[in-house]
């Protein structure tokens, strides 16, 4: 007795590919034996009853296999993760220090940037009022108002020196965050590929969230040491939260996504190194693209605020500037 197309279709739908042939063959074998022993119609009815009784089990088995592939069955030839305490601590410490440095530099340079947006025009919201001679406020922030190098004939003033130092700090911030982010993503990804098999997908997410929380707390502690008045800025500036959230999201995604993609896609699993390279490039582009957009949005928002004649300065409390200047001019 051969199964007709409907039976074939139902069984194909409910069977996982690992046991599809075996189960179809078993059904054929049993049906043939039944037809040999009993009447063909009786065998047919038995077959359908048997099929209906089997379907819930077979469907459950298929779903279990799918779920298992999703949160565990990662094949990764040639991409052995490096496990151990050191390899777990390294990326955490790296990103924490990076985030702390970033926040500190961000806090220091923020003072300079807000100086650029101090507007004294007061009245006049229209374009004509904004472009009126004598009242025009340069849209260029203080940071970009000076040339990169001091020339012999350029006036030596404290602001210029401050700006040059702030520029250097921002460049360092960028480099630190680039390095820390890449180290973190790379090692977390290798780690998550290995751990996905041992821990399972759900625990991996919890672990990832835990790591992000640890990194956030470490960065917060370090920042407090690096910048005594950081607490004040932190409360005032909600934008800092956005920056932190962005990094936490990137960290979380970098940990989870490779495990999902590698377990779902056989193409990615076959070439994990190539996938990892493409993924890292994509994530780097995403990170810095988002940062650029973020900065553009901040700039637009502040420009708009400036046009409306609102003072956006006074980020630092009274007296904080005295503490900041010796640090910058050391």
């Amino acid at each position: 007795m051969t199964m007709n197309r409907l039976k074939q279709w139902v069984l194909n739908l409910c069977l996982s590919r690992e046991i599809r042939d075996a189960v179809l063959g078993d059904m054929d074998e049993m049906a043939a034996a039944m037809a040999h022993e009993k009447h063909a119609d009786k065998a047919k009815r038995w077959f359908w009853r048997h099929l209906l009784r089997s379907l819930p089990f077979l469907l459950a088995e298929k779903l279990q296999r799918k779920w298992s592939r999703l949160h565990g069955g990662v094949t990764r030839p040639g991409l052995e993760p490096k496990n151990g305490a050191l390899f777990s601590l390294l990326p955490i410490a790296g990103l924490s220090i990076g985030l702390a440095c970033c926040l500190t530099i961000f806090a220091i340079t923020r003072d300079l940037r807000t100086e650029a947006r101090v507007v004294d025009r007061g009245e006049g919201k229209g374009v004509a009022a904004a472009s009126a001679p004598g009242r025009l406020v340069s849209p260029i922030p203080v940071l970009s108002r000076y040339p990169m190098k001091r020339t012999a004939d350029s006036p030596v003033d404290r602001e210029h020196i401050q700006i040059l130092r702030a520029r250097r700090l921002l460049a360092i911030e960028f480099m630190i965050m680039l390095a820390a982010g890449l180290v973190f993503m790379n090692s977390m990804m290798a780690n998550s590929l290995g751990r996905a098999q041992q821990l399972g997908f759900r625990r991996l997410i919890v672990r990832s969230a835990g790591l992000a929380a640890v990194i956030f707390l470490l960065a917060r502690l370090l920042t407090r040491f690096l910048l005594p008045y950081f607490q004040f800025l932190f409360e005032k500036q909600m934008l800092l939260y956005w920056l932190i959230a962005l990094w936490l999201i990137v960290g979380g995604i970098s940990n989870i996504v490779p495990a999902i993609v590698l377990s779902l896609s056989t193409v990615a699993a076959r070439r994990p190194r190539r996938f990892a390279a493409v993924y890292l490039a994509f994530m780097a582009a995403f990170m810095f693209g988002t940062l650029l957009i973020f900065r553009q949005l901040v700039h637009l928002k502040d420009t708009q605020t400036a046009r409306n004649g609102i003072r956006t300065s006074a980020v630092l409390p009274d007296g904080a500037r005295e503490g900041l200047e010796p640090r910058l001019f050391r």
């Binding site: 189960v23 009784r53 089990f57 279990q64």
Partner: peptide, 20 residues
């Protein structure tokens, strides 16, 4: 049913107690 046999077989396979 044949499904009732394959379901525990899969669980055993996952636990590493049988191999296909």
């Amino acid at each position: 049913s044949i499904g009732a046999v394959y379901a525990p077989l899969y669980r055993l396979e996952r636990k590493g107690l049988v191999r296909m």
